[in-house]
């Protein structure tokens, strides 16, 4: 047991922060969100520096990949970091060069990066499939939720099966990446808002000095930090069934609470584009829906733990 980053992990994080300071951040995210654009430059910078391959290195794995996804989300990156750096490498053993979308067979709603992806990882019941879109790219949809979304071609090309049972692994990795991405965005939004309520004054005092705000903020802090440990332990253990569903369930349920509370604390200002809170919070509304949302994550966690007695439902 050692719950601090080791020297190697700290060195990776330090170097990564330098890159993210240069290529990502709130202003960059706001600029991209205006046009529902994908951050091709950030994607390339992460790829060139070798970060997308982090989980394939001899001395690293899913924990380092989760750390990366968390950090990129914290810097408000508009890239398919979870799919590109955590899910695809672990599932197919290689890093796709272009943006990757995630989809579930039979669901036709818009998905993250649906109009920018060259490849799609599809959860198709028992098996996962890797679909090359070639010239048949998705159609963008206009969205308010920070990350670009699009509708994938319908029907999707069949693509390549990743083997019997591979979809379960895809869902586990997807849930881990979701938890990491939620955490990064929530942490940044919490830090921003802690500063805001310390400076914003009403009734002659900083609003963050009111207990009505302090207790609710502290409750969010317990959940954000608790969810971080769930996510990191699940990553360290290789994304096992049970742990990842708990991590995703806790992260996505916390995401809604954090969204609601931080926007409440920030008042009308938080609903403007001039205040940066939206950079991190709007994407939480998108992330919390994936793979069925917190209720589905929790039900699946219960089925994993209590096995035969709890059979029924799906995924």
């Amino acid at each position: 047991m050692d719950l601090d980053w080791n020297d190697d992990q700290r060195a990776i994080l330090d170097a990564l922060r330098v890159l993210l300071d240069q290529h990502a951040g709130q202003e960059r995210a706001a600029e991209l969100a205006r046009d529902d654009a994908y951050d091709t430059a950030l994607h390339a910078a992460l790829a060139d520096a070798g970060y997308l391959e982090i989980s394939l290195a001899d001395d690293a794995g899913l924990l380092e990949a989760a750390m990366l996804v968390d950090a990129v989300a914290g810097a408000a990156g508009s890239v398919s970091i979870g799919a590109s750096a955590l899910i695809a490498p672990a599932l197919v053993g290689a890093v796709p060069p272009d943006p990757v979308a995630l989809a579930r067979a039979g669901e036709r709603g818009p998905v993250r990066f649906g109009a920018h992806a060259a490849q799609v990882l599809v959860d198709d019941g028992d098996e996962a499939r890797l679909v090359e879109l070639g010239d048949r790219r998705g159609e963008p949809v206009e969205t308010n939720y920070a990350l670009p979304m699009g509708r994938l071609p319908d029907p999707l090309p069949a693509g390549r099966s990743l083997g019997a049972g591979s979809s379960a692994r895809l869902r586990r990795l997807w849930r881990l990446a979701l938890a990491a991405e939620c955490h990064g965005a929530m942490r940044a939004a919490m830090d921003l808002t802690a500063r805001y309520v310390s400076e914003r004054r009403q009734f002659g005092r900083a609003i963050g000095s009111f207990q009505a705000i302090q207790h609710r903020f502290a409750e969010c802090e317990v959940r954000v930090q608790g969810g971080r440990w769930l996510m990191l332990e699940a990553a360290h253990q290789g994304a096992p069934a049970g742990a990842v569903e708990l991590a995703a369930g806790y992260a996505t349920r916390t995401a809604l609470q954090v969204f609601n509370e931080l926007h409440q604390f920030t008042g009308a200002m938080g609903f403007t584009r001039e205040h940066p809170l939206h950079t991190w919070t709007l994407r939480l509304q998108l992330l919390r829906l994936e793979l069925g949302g917190p209720g589905m994550h929790y039900r699946q966690a219960a089925r994993v733990r209590w096995g035969r007695a709890a059979r029924g439902g799906t995924r």
Partner: peptide, 13 residues
């Protein structure tokens, strides 16, 4: 099932 999962998450946290 959902409440069992949620309680399990709270315990793990």
């Amino acid at each position: 099932l959902e409440r069992l999962g949620e309680a399990r998450a709270a315990i793990e946290v």
